[in-house]
Design a protein around this nucleic acid. Sequence first.
DNA 1: CAGACCTTGGCACGGATGTGTCAACTTGCA
DNA 2: TGCAAGTTGACACATCCGTGCCAAGGTCTG
Lengths: 118, 118
Amino acid sequence: MDVLTIAEAAQTTGWSARMLRYIEHSGLVAPRRSEGGYRLYGPAQVERLRTLRDLVTTYDIGLAELAFMARLRSEPEAAAAVGEWFATRPARPEEPPVTDWLRFEQEKHERLLTHTEK
Amino acid sequence: MDVLTIAEAAQTTGWSARMLRYIEHSGLVAPRRSEGGYRLYGPAQVERLRTLRDLVTTYDIGLAELAFMARLRSEPEAAAAVGEWFATRPARPEEPPVTDWLRFEQEKHERLLTHTEK
DNA sequence: CAGACCTTGGCACGGATGTGTCAACTTGCA
DNA sequence: TGCAAGTTGACACATCCGTGCCAAGGTCTG
């Protein structure tokens, strides 16, 4: 029974069934379907829905923004263009040399890596 | 005379003055100000506005989405969380190998982030 | 100093987001 | 076979996004 129906998935993830459908609609988490068309959420999707909830609530990020990120992931060209735009800083003379574009959490990783082992 | 007033900047960038204010409001391109409070757009800002226009029109990206990207750039923690979410794949077997798009995250590192503390 | 231009603030408006709810119908299971 | 539970589709609504436009009042410059 690790295949949940929409109501069950809603229950354990904190979303409403309505939102689960909406989330699927926006392409963020899509469940499998039964023969008859019922949505079947597996453990992976459930986990994904939970983390999505955390992400959205703790950082106050909209589903639309995440959908946009997803889009960038599937459109490298657009992603590159965006990255370029941000990398090209306002041309302030004495600014540090454009730290290789969108690697946001880099510093964090470096810090982590200095004392963590995989 | 490479310091333009808002109407002039609007003229050469293709935006309307109204939108220039809006763009500033959303934190994407902010001009200097004169003593009296007039917006003064330098060549850098103008260029930025032009490329912004290209970006927005050719890829049909909203200013809000770009503002979101900007936010991620200034909030590494949120960026890391988002990156992690996307890096953690839906565990669907038949998905294409996520073309290492923007190197938002590296699969090797995400595991670390999952359970490490600052 | 006058008139052109700018500033902020607000009203308006169509379209998108995020959510709920109801209706009409189809599936799944005891 | 019946009824609980799922499905899609649509209506509703508050709030944002992207824009335009207008008003009341400062700023700039010939």
